[in-house]
Write a protein that binds this DNA or RNA. Structure first.
Ligand SMILES: Nc1ccn([C@H]2C[C@H](O)[C@@H](COP(=O)(O)OP(=O)(O)OP(=O)(O)O)O2)c(=O)n1
Ligand SMILES: [Mg+2]
Length: 398
DNA sequence: GCGGATCAC
DNA sequence: TATGGTGATCCGC
């Protein structure tokens, strides 16, 4: 790991800035840092658990486990991504390998065929089986766990799910969601059939490649970086609350009866969340009030946020992803300030608060992806430090 | 380059 | 009654 070339550094703060002064953000930006504009050669799709054919991937002693090693799309790739160092070609290769046999690109075709089919014929995507109430299988993002919505909730998850179902069912949106569920079910069935059909030999080969990939990844974790992800708390709402701090005390959503961009913490206790239609939120929380969104203002505050971080980024590692998030490697700043990265992180958060008046949470970790995961763990107005060792990383991933 | 689709915030 | 705006990627054509 030490022998490898360090990743490209020292990118300017705003290369080819767009109107926000923000570098365009690819799906996993860090996988292509320093490679903008270069078209990477695409590999042809590899079926899950295919033999490594004659490619170099199968060569003995090859540290790089090959493009299909982590492409199963079975959930294993999340673990791999969390374990890996994330700024090299291999990470990029693995990402592209996921565009193979079971990749989302297939979903376009599945969506069309699922749409043609009769509603409710596939298990899990129609009226629920047996005596279960119909709302029980209408799973939406609104019943997923979300950091900071654990205790002191007014409504149970089940209540939220039922209200969302009752307010949605029969609508065009609802039917479209059902159609997408059917497509996902079809995709899962295909994958399961493929695994069932695999020979024991193929399964063993796949396990060996997975083990090799894990071993290789384990060597890539580095402790010479201290990636922080700063994420503003209740961002859109917080911008409005600057002018009217009393808003913090009552349930408020940003948006309107049609759609909510975000909600304050008082409203989240009722299950009111980003991307929830306002009329459903009103059902969950009748006293909810709305404020109209103001993108120009969010944009202005976002710039202040980014500028507040510049003194903590002498090497130009910062990357502003969206309006309320920014990745920075704090290693250089913490060395210069003769502090631990955690202390520097806290100082940076204080600087953001001073510049914007809004609290911010942060995660600090050996890779950006881990920093992002960690940033939710002590929200709001907190930070979580994830040390650079396997035990801590695995415990956090779990 | 465009339209369809997906994803993140 | 009623399901967004903004910015990005990827695919097939
Ligand atoms: N579906 C979504 C999700 C988010 N946003 C906007 C509003 C949020 O304020 C902002 C930041 O998104 P976050 O996920 O960080 O949510 P918040 O900052 O509002 O809350 P948190 O304190 O959980 O970070 O992006 C949006 O318009 N639509
Ligand atoms: Mg936020």
């Amino acid at each position: 790991a030490r022998a490898r070339q360090p990743p490209p550094r020292g990118l300017p703060w705003r290369p080819g800035a767009n109107e926000r002064g923000v570098r365009p953000r690819p799906r996993r930006p860090w996988a292509r840092v320093g490679q903008r504009g270069k078209q990477r050669q695409r590999r042809s799709p590899q079926p899950f658990m295919s033999a490594p054919s004659t490619s170099a991937a199968g060569a003995a002693g090859e540290a790089h486990a090959g493009p299909d090693a982590a492409s199963a799309g079975d959930g294993g790739e999340l673990v791999l991504e969390l374990l890996e160092e994330d700024e090299d070609d291999e990470a990029c290769d693995r990402e592209e390998a996921q565009d193979g046999w079971f990749a989302a690109s297939q979903q376009q075709h599945e969506l069309q065929s699922a749409g043609a089919g009769e509603a409710g014929t596939e298990a899990g995507a129609g009226p629920s089986a047996a005596d279960e109430p119909a709302w029980k299988d209408y799973a939406t993002v609104f019943t997923n766990d979300k950091a900071g919505m654990g205790d002191n909730m007014v409504h149970s998850k089940e209540h939220v799910q039922r209200v969302v179902y009752e307010m949605s069912q029969g609508s065009p949106h609802f039917e479209n969601e059902r159609r997408k569920e059917r497509a996902a079910d079809e995709r899962a069935s295909r994958m399961e059939a493929h695994v069932r059909a695999a020979t024991e030999q193929a399964l063993q080969a796949a396990r060996r490649r997975a083990d090799a990939a894990l071993t290789a990844l384990e060597l890539t974790r580095r402790s010479d970086r201290a990636w922080a992800l700063f994420d503003m708390d209740q961002f859109f709402f917080a911008v409005h609350a600057q002018k009217d701090p009393k808003l913090h005390e009552v349930p408020v959503a940003v948006g309107g009866i049609g759609m909510i961009s975000t909600a304050n913490y008082a409203a989240r206790r009722y299950g009111v969340r980003s991307a929830m239609p306002g009329f459903i939120a009103k059902k969950l929380c009748p006293q909810l009030t709305f404020v109209r969104s103001d993108f120009a203002e969010y944009s202005r505050v976002s710039k202040l946020f980014g500028e507040a971080l510049r003194p903590f980024d002498p090497e130009g590692t910062a990357y502003q992803a969206g309006l309320d998030e920014c990745y920075v490697d704090l290693k250089a700043a913490s060395a210069a300030r003769d502090e631990t990265p955690a202390e520097t992180c806290a100082a940076a958060r204080a600087a953001i608060k001073a510049a914007t008046g809004i609290t911010v949470s942060a995660g600090l970790a050996p890779s950006r992806q881990l920093a992002k995961v960690a940033s939710d763990l002590n929200k709001p107005d907190g930070q979580y430090v994830l040390p650079s060792n396997r035990g801590a990383v695995v415990a956090c991933a779990r």
